[in-house]
């Protein structure tokens, strides 16, 4: 069953800015969708459209077959949202905030307290549970926002840069939680992020946006074959033949783009025949980062 669908979704802001331009995406249950793109690509706008905070100019989107523009409150009951601007109450403590948000999602005070404390433990905020939010650091607030989004056990998470202010340990922790939630509870995650390395670790599928357009979409393997096929062969060796030396990095490692595995023994033989020693050979597939830059720069070179 399709959990989220975007059909020719477009949004033009009142000022005339086209932030999202005919985007088509469908997500099924349990997917972790990495929504990537440079600043101003239209990621936040898409999340706002899915949350019903904006109405589409053209096209439509659905969440569990509900139209967020028509039934926002029904969509909200099913999803948890973390955005950079959504703050909580400074005058309340961490746990008081969670109890309040639990109660507006229809949990009883004791239920929301129990669930809140659980989440605070998982997010390593338990010791700060009775501190007022005004005494929280940016990263603590960010983690509390994540706890808030999970308080009512949503079926979908819309996360807009949920780890932007976090230290590496906390970011890792949040990413592990996201992965676990999708694996064990079948939660669908729509994740906007600039942290491509982390995205590659936790996302099952990706969409790359630029200036409102969806440039490419698919799993990492699909993107590799669509965008930049081939791999990079890395060789550490001595006596490198002259015609290969242009691939040498400053550290003396050869990095040669290849299209098929057959090129590996061929190159190795050439080095050995010219009297060199090989210490190490490996092949690296293009990472998400490579694909991202490939896509965004290829567009530039076409212009």
């Amino acid at each position: 069953m399709n959990v989220i669908t975007l059909t020719e979704l477009s949004k033009i802001y009142p000022g005339g800015k086209k932030a999202v331009d005919s985007v088509n995406i469908t997500l099924s249950s349990g997917e972790v969708f990495g929504f990537l793109g440079p600043n101003g690509a239209g990621k936040t706008t898409t999340i706002k459209l899915l949350g019903g905070m904006l109405t589409p100019t053209q096209g439509s989107c659905t969440v569990f077959s509900l139209d967020p523009a028509k039934n926002p409150e029904k969509v909200h009951a099913l999803c948890g949202v973390v955005t950079e601007h959504a703050q909580m109450y400074d005058a309340l403590t961490g746990i008081q905030n969670l109890i309040f948000y639990g109660s507006i999602y229809g949990l009883t005070p004791s239920e929301s307290k129990k669930r809140g404390l659980e989440l605070l433990k998982q997010l390593e905020l338990y010791d700060a549970k009775d501190q007022k939010l005004s005494a929280y650091s940016t990263g603590m607030r960010q983690r509390l926002s994540f706890a808030r989004a999970l308080i009512h056990q949503p079926k979908i998470l819309f996360l807009d840069e949920p780890t932007s202010g976090l230290d590496p340990e906390s970011a890792q922790n949040v990413h592990d939680m996201i992965r676990l939630l999708s694996k064990e509870n079948g939660i669908t995650v729509f994740l906007c992020t600039h942290q491509l390395r982390y995205a590659q670790e936790i996302c099952t599928r990706y969409g790359l946006m630029e200036k409102g357009n969806l440039l490419a979409e698919g799993t990492l393997t699909q993107l590799r074959s669509k965008v930049c096929s081939g791999a990079t062969m890395k060789i550490k060796a001595t006596e490198i033949p002259h015609e290969l030396s242009c691939y040498q990095t400053p550290e003396g490692i050869l990095e040669i783009p290849i299209q098929s595995e057959e090129e590996i023994p061929k190159t190795a033989r050439r080095i050995i025949e010219s009297g060199g020693n090989i210490y190490h050979i490996s092949t690296v597939l293009p990472s998400l980062e490579d694909i991202y830059f490939h896509l965004t720069t290829r567009k530039e070179s076409l212009k």
Binding site: G51, M53, P72, E73, K74, H76, A77, V81, T83, H85, A86, Q87, M88, Y89, D90, Y101, I104, Y105, G106, R148
Partner: peptide, 17 residues
């Protein structure tokens, strides 16, 4: 002003409520 309104708007109550 304190940006808590957006968070509140994401709750499962209609705007009217």
């Amino acid at each position: 002003e304190k940006r808590t309104l957006e968070t509140l708007l994401y709750c499962p109550l209609s705007l009217k409520q």
